[in-house]
C-alpha cells in the first residue's frame, strides 16, 4: 500500500506540474521577469497549491500516525541561518538561469526532453558536490 500510494502521489504531483505550466521554462522565466512582459500565472499555481495543502497540513499536525500507520515525518528544524539563506539564494540563481526547478526538471526528463536530462545530470552533480562538502548533513525537507 505504501509503495502504491507513493507512486500515485508522484504521478498526481507530476500531472499538476504539467497542467500548471511549471514544466515549461519559458513560462517560469516569464513569471520571474517582473520588469518585462510579466506572466503572473505561477503565482496562481502557488496560490492554488497552498490553498489546498494548508488544510492537509492543519489535519496532519493533529495526527500521531499517517493513514497507513507510519510515523509523521514533519520537519523539526526551525533555525533561520546562513545555510538556509545562502542555499536558497543559490537555488534561485539557478532557477532564474534556466527556468527549471527540481520537480519540473524530472518531469521534463520523463517526457524525453534532452535539455531536461542534461539539467538533471548537472543537478545530481550539484547535490553530490554538496554531500562531499558537507559530510555531517542529515537534514532534508
Amino acid at each position: 500500500m505504501n509503495r502504491l500510494s507513493e507512486f500515485l502521489i508522484g504521478l498526481i504531483f507530476g500531472w499538476g506540474l504539467l497542467i500548471s505550466g511549471m514544466t515549461d521554462p519559458g513560462k517560469v522565466l516569464g513569471f520571474l521577469d517582473v520588469t518585462g512582459a510579466w506572466d503572473p500565472s505561477l503565482a496562481f499555481v502557488m496560490g492554488g497549491a497552498v490553498l489546498v495543502s494548508v488544510v492537509g497540513f492543519a489535519l496532519a499536525k493533529k495526527r500521531a500516525r499517517s493513514f497507513l500507520g507510519t510515523a509523521m515525518h514533519l520537519p523539526t528544524a526551525r533555525d533561520i541561518d546562513r545555510r538556509l539563506i545562502l542555499g536558497s539564494l543559490t537555488f534561485g540563481a539557478g532557477w532564474g538561469l534556466a527556468g527549471f526547478c527540481p520537480g519540473p526538471a524530472l518531469v521534463a526528463l520523463g517526457a524525453g526532453i534532452p535539455k531536461a536530462a542534461l539539467f538533471v545530470l548537472a543537478m545530481v552533480a550539484g547535490m553530490l558536490i554538496y554531500e562531499m562538502l558537507d559530510q555531517r548533513s542529515a537534514r532534508s525537507v
Binding site: 542555499g87 539564494l89 540563481a93 527549471f100 539539467f119 538533471v120 545530470l121 548537472a122 550539484g126
Partner: peptide, 8 residues
C-alpha cells in the same frame, strides 16, 4: 543552472 539548483 543544474549545478546551482542541486547545490543550493
Amino acid at each position: 543552472a543544474g549545478i546551482l539548483v542541486g547545490l543550493g
